[in-house]
Amino acid sequence: MTEAINSTASLGQASFILVGIPGLEAFHAWIGIPLGLMYMLTLLGNISILFVIKSEPSLHKPMYLFLSMLAVNDLIISTSTAPKMLGIMWQGAREIGFDACLVQMYFIHTFSIVESAILLAMAIDRYVAICHPLHYATILSNPVVAKMGLAAAARGVILVVPCPVLIKRLPSCFRRIIRHTYCEHMAVVKMACADTTVNRTYGICVALLVVTLDLGLIGTSYTMILRAVFRLSSRDARAKALGTCAAHTCTILVSYVPALFTFLTHRIGKNVPPYIHILLATVYLLLPPMVNPLVYGVKTQQIRQRVLDLFRQRRKAPGEQ
């Protein structure tokens, strides 16, 4: 288990061993049950959201187009990690190829950054809808929404490209044992038997840049939204305006709070057991993709009503035949 790869020429054929949740190996089969349920709910919820939005022309609006982007992004993030996690938990399939590990790492971090950008775009959408309602259709036309989606994807792709490239350029050896459930950037970097200052610095700078920029702009958007809302004279108008932001606010909290706990636990919680670190990191990846469609399904009347209509049609169908 302590085997190391000593030649950079053989890295393409090398493999890592993902431990899973260190210290809780005896409970992996049981831990896999909630993880599997989370993944099933993620698939069901996000695919349902995409189907409802695609099949209902009245939902082909910026808010729901951004929601579609979020659903696709969540499906990619969860599918890039959950199957391997479940393989570790239920089958003991811990080995992962070096290149496969880098691909998984790239997908996780790229689409995490894309998700943050989509949440920012959704905040801008709510700002325009509440603060500039008369110009909403002009400012956020479908071509503009498409460009925002492409910009979000491009930012993630470009910012994360140096991570696997820098890891590939590391000299010396790589230890094989990764004490994690998936190939996270810093977990892989720590395996290198070489100076990884550049890798660490770049990873931290990207994380801080994305979180600071996106949260700052989201906070600014909501500050202006609240100022506009509290200027309304009618209590009902204020409640309706705030209600349109409820689902997005829940999504932001579900996405950023676990990430914040994970970051603080890794950087500050030196006395926290390793299994707590890994459990938090696992929840951070799997919880938002599962919760987001549930939040929008409950909070958004159009989506909720459409889903209920679909179930009613299916119930009636057998009796009508």
Rank of each mutant, 00 (worst) to 15 (best):
Q13C: 10
V19T: 14
V19L: 08
M38I: 06
L41V: 10
T42S: 13
G45R: 05
G45K: 03
L50S: 08
F51L: 12
V52H: 01
V52K: 03
P57M: 12
P57Y: 12
L59R: 06
P62C: 08
L70I: 12
C101F: 03
M105C: 12
H109I: 01
I113V: 05
E115S: 01
A129I: 04
T138M: 06
P143N: 04
P143I: 13
A146K: 13
K147G: 06
G149M: 10
I158R: 10
L159K: 11
V161K: 13
P164Q: 10
P171D: 13
R175A: 09
H180A: 14
Y182D: 00
A194Q: 06
G203T: 02
V206K: 06
L213C: 12
L217G: 00
M224S: 14
A228V: 05
S234G: 14
A237G: 05
R238E: 07
K240A: 15
A246P: 04
V254L: 01
T262A: 13
G269R: 00
L285K: 07
P289G: 07
N292W: 01
N292M: 08
P293S: 12
V295F: 02
Y296F: 15
T300E: 15
I303C: 06
L308S: 12
P318G: 12
Q321T: 10
